[in-house]
Design a protein around this nucleic acid. Structure first.
Length: 305
DNA sequence: TTCCAGGGGTAGA
DNA sequence: TCTACCCATGGA
């Protein structure tokens, strides 16, 4: 076993990142609320699979990796975990704005802002695609099915698998994906996986901070199965908060909170948060609609339970 | 049984 | 740019 301790840019709260959105419930992620242990499986560049047990530290995270990593693999794992937890992200500018807004005043003290990411943007694009026009229980089922069927098994542990590489899905058939329950999403996922595997789509290039948000959004919208909602969600994953991922929850919450319950559309949701400029998506995502210091995520979880 | 979900693609206006 | 319609599947 190897242990890495990775510092985070302050302020940082492990649990706030874990529960920033529903990803912690999707395979191969596992979260144990009682013990505060987060586990996942990663496939490294060498092809080796490793399990990561990640726990919160006062100002960062500790990563226990099995089996023992080489020095080179330690660097790779550190980079992956840094990305997944946004350890180097700085939200000072957002907090300065949020401090003056009662509905966002809880953000700084809870270190809200970081959104839990998968280690690669392909994984997150697939997961977002599996959230479209489906209930959350269905999303969990489909992602688990993809991991179980295509994921790389961990040597010596047949039960744990990493999220499948694009190439593994690319070599399958649409009929196989449909049988797994993906329905009409099957051809979209197949096209995305084949495009990524062939190099037609370079998703990791979208992490380039030098590119404009509009350009990145255009590239996201060009991907099969990625529309306005999915593109906005992925932009948030990429640390760009100019667009709100408008789903049925957003429409409902913003209608109640800002339009007196009147029927509204995607434009109205974005208009309600227009004054937050490049922090629109964060302002919406952590907005305390209930007035009880509760973000939409927490309200959504409470409704689930 | 009917409706609809953390929507997207397409055609037609 | 906006709207209407279709898309598979399972949960409510």
């Amino acid at each position: 076993m190897s242990v890495l301790v990775l510092p985070a840019y302050s302020p940082f709260q492990f649990r706030s990142v874990i529960r920033s959105h529903g990803w912690y419930q999707l395979a191969p992620f596992e979260w144990d609320e009682a013990s505060g242990v987060f586990r996942t499986v990663e496939r490294l560049n060498s092809g080796r699979g490793v399990t990561l047990k990640i726990t919160g530290q006062p100002e960062g995270v500790a990563v226990a990796a099995r089996p023992k990593l080489t020095r080179h693999e330690e660097q790779e794992v550190a980079a992956k975990v840094t990305w997944m937890f946004g350890l180097d992200a700085d939200f000072a500018e957002f907090y300065a704005l949020a401090d003056a807004e009662p509905r966002l005043a809880h953000c700084r003290k809870n270190a809200y802002g970081r959104l839990l990411r998968s280690s690669s943007l392909f994984d997150d694009a697939v997961k977002v695609m599996m959230t479209t026009n489906i209930q959350w229980s269905g999303t969990k089922r489909l992602v688990s099915a993809l991991v179980d069927y295509f994921g790389e098994p961990l040597p010596g542990d047949g039960t744990r698998r990493a999220f499948p590489a694009a190439g593994r899905i690319a070599r399958s058939r649409e009929s196989t994906l449909r049988k797994m329950g993906l329905g009409y999403r099957a051809p979209y996922l197949l096209k995305l996986a084949r495009g990524v595997a062939s190099g037609q789509y370079d998703l990791e290039a979208l992490k380039d901070e030098a590119r404009s948000t509009e350009e990145v959004r255009r590239d996201l919208l060009a991907l099969p199965g990625i529309g306005p909602y999915a593109a906005a969600t992925l932009l948030g994953i990429l640390g760009r908060y100019d667009y709100i991922g408008v789903d049925t929850e957003a429409v409902s919450a913003v209608s109640q909170g800002f339009y007196g319950g009147e029927p509204i559309g995607e434009k109205d949701v974005n208009a309600a948060f227009a004054r937050w400029g490049r922090y629109k998506a964060l302002a919406y995502w952590f907005w305390d609609f209930s007035g009880q210091q509760q973000s939409p995520m927490e309200a959504w979880e409470a409704k689930q339970a």
